[in-house]
Design a protein around this nucleic acid. Sequence first.
RNA 1: GCAGACGUAGCUCAGUUGGUUAGAGCGUCGGAUUGUGGCUCCGAAGGUCGGUGGUUCGAAUCCACCCGUCUGUACCA
Length: 544
Amino acid sequence: MAKVKNNKLKARLPRGFTDRSAADIRATDEMLSKIRTVFERYGFDPVETPAFEYTDCLGKFLPDTDRPNAGVFSVQDDDEQWMSLRYDLTAPLARHVAENINEIQLPYRTYRAGYVYRNEKPGPGRFRQFMQFDADTVGAAGVQADAEICMMAADTMEALGIARGAYVIRVNNRKVLDGVMEAIGLGGEENAERRLTVLRAIDKLDKFGPEGVRLLLGDGRWDGGEEGKGDFTRGARLDDEQVDTVMKFTAGVTHGLPTSKGGSDRDLGDMKTWSIDGEEYFTDNRTTCLTLLHSVRDNPLAKEGLNELLQIASLAESAGYGSRRILIDPSVVRGLEYYTGPVYEAELLFDVTNEKGEVVQFGSVGGGGRYDGLVKRFTGRDVPATGFSIGVSRLATALKNLGKLGTDDVVPPVLVTVMDGDTEALGRYQKMAQALRDHRSDDYPNGIRAEMYQGNWKKFGNQLKYADRRGCPLAIIQGSDEREAGEIQIKDLIEGKRLSGEITDNVTWRESRPAQVTVKEAELVERVKAMLAEQAEDRAKAGN
RNA sequence: GCAGACGUAGCUCAGUUGGUUAGAGCGUCGGAUUGUGGCUCCGAAGGUCGGUGGUUCGAAUCCACCCGUCUGUACCA
């Protein structure tokens, strides 16, 4: 015999992709359903687009070639047209709206969940296929649409079980940073590259802190945090004055008012508060906007952006959403490409520890903004739009580590064991399983999960072993003895497992048949129900 | 992409200065036990030492390249 094993195909999962377990799928379904409930309540309707789009519709060709951008998975169709897997849900939505613009009633409020694909370096908690859940309002130009999206984002966080104060929706406006960069002389086409560098630097505030960002705005920064360590990242090469201006706008510039002064005509119930020297302050979005407005009064673009932010803050506050939930924060950058106005980011404020017990920097679990130009690319017509996207896979990881995500509470099926393999006997066993499945009651609106053993029935021990490993709560046993007496045995596998600790002798263990009751065959369903109820009660007790 | 660390059985890891047939624990499978899970005992299977090439009488060990994993960083629509 030649070595067949040399020809064995190696089973391997593509890197950056993952198989999902039953527990994962159930937990994610639960999350999706909670998110969907909020979106539906706000009057959004679902629409779905496919995973593939023509690459030009995604706008992702490399600038200097006719090949798609390296970051997207692409294939060529029969006719050599490039197609790509979608890398977000926004660009495909713009395509859908443009293509159906005559049928769609604007403003169009819509949501969708789906996998998106990015050809990037994967890492722990970072995949090349992951799920997003989007909501967009297309055809609404006013900032009230943006304010609404932020409020809905906050509601969604809470619907998922994240307490108020444990998350925040940060809001900025692309026009503000663009205006500031214009004001320090970085306007114009020739500075586009430097503007990107500045935005990227600001985006790293939470990673490197103000000092690191200063380096990136200036000459540059070493990977390792100090000279000579790792690679060198080239900076934006701003001078000190320019750096100061940018930092003044971004690093820690949310402003507060003493509660005693600002509180007279304001509802402080949802404001973020803190104390210094015995005096209580609250974070005031309006003061943040007004202070910044004061310092940019020469720049029309920044002024416009800040006025929009001021409106968003006021609208949110009128609806009861204060700075604890929706925070004006001029350091928010978000993607660099298609956003044109307000941008938002949902951030978790609690520590997330991974399975190794390490605290991980979690960053944002969702974000979005206004993209007024995206549909216009197709239609030539102004179709302003704003939307928000939740990183479902990331958020699921965070919730799981927080213990907020359903540890699998689905009870495995009752196992009907097989003692005789002839057709008639198998029919009897199948009928028992069916009786459990067909049962309907308030506790079991969809029946009781049950299965007949489908493996080699001749080794009875293996059947119980299977049931044990599968976590089955009960096993139904009927051999010829029980059959003749019109009885069945129901074995409580959970209780039996507990008793096994007290029995060391195998003969006793086998003959005592712990936690096993003999009942009339006709009582099958009722007794199973009763025993499952007892187990549920025990679980509830242990859980508390 | 760049820099560094690592890669031995399904899993966790030993493996001496380069030296015969590469080991252990756990897990898996079979048996003790043909109608009862766990425990115990006995037995077995499982490895191209990440891959390819090179140095050598001889390579898991040394060298080169590649692949993969991890860490940092870049990019992230």
